[in-house]
Nucleic acid binder design. Structure first.
Lengths: 100, 100
DNA sequence: CTATCTATGTTGTTTTGCAACATAGTATTT
DNA sequence: AAATACTATGTTGCAAAACAACATAGATAG
């Protein structure tokens, strides 16, 4: 899969998945991997960026079958960002459709 | 406009524009700028890459109002690449649509 | 006790677009 | 003649983001 296509869009995918419900990193990796190939480390980089920019908050929950899970939750700022970024994406692919 | 969204897609836009007809750099810049904001230097970098990879050939034509124009023409390899890349793009945005 | 699955994280590399700058021919205005 | 603007091509340094590879660690099955 063309790695360049994903630039910026993976972030939107993560935000949109978190808009559905709080999820932990590994869970997100599996959800997104059903559609797109993505390196495991990449998701954690995106999540760290999102937290640094206050788009998400995190909380730990114990797991019965492995290490504790770090859940990610959209902040209000994150919800706004997700809405804006999605609109920008839809506008973008429309304009590309005209060109190609 | 989100610069990251463009990664890889600008190349497809250039290839698709050249699939319509041979064009010179400045002409391509104006055509693509009608839909997407793009720095002038960026187009020339893409065109150089495409030539290095033998996706396009070039030829010079004199101009009556300015310097000579370097026209870019898709090679057979370039046509195949354009078709494949377009299919990959359409598949990609479909998968993103499921996630967001 | 070794392998496997779950789970999170770091580091170095590569690709690509952007801003800024450089060059140059032609035409128009001052 | 000089300055400005438009057309046209190109280079350089920088920043963003994904990838591959690696590191860590708890729980469980063989």
């Amino acid at each position: 899969m063309n790695a360049q296509f994903k630039k910026g869009v993976l972030e939107l995918c993560v935000l949109s998945q978190l808009a559905l419900k709080d999820q932990y990193g590994y869970e997100l990796t599996e959800a997104i991997s059903q559609q797109l190939t993505v390196a495991t480390g990449t998701l954690y980089l995106i999540l760290r960026r999102l937290k640094e920019d206050s788009y998400v908050d995190t909380y730990l929950i114990e797991s019965s079958n492995g290490p504790a899970r770090k859940y990610y939750k959209l902040t209000d700022k994150g919800k706004t960002y997700q809405t804006d970024l999605k609109a920008e994406w839809l506008d973008f692919i429309e304009k590309v459709a005209i060109l190609i």
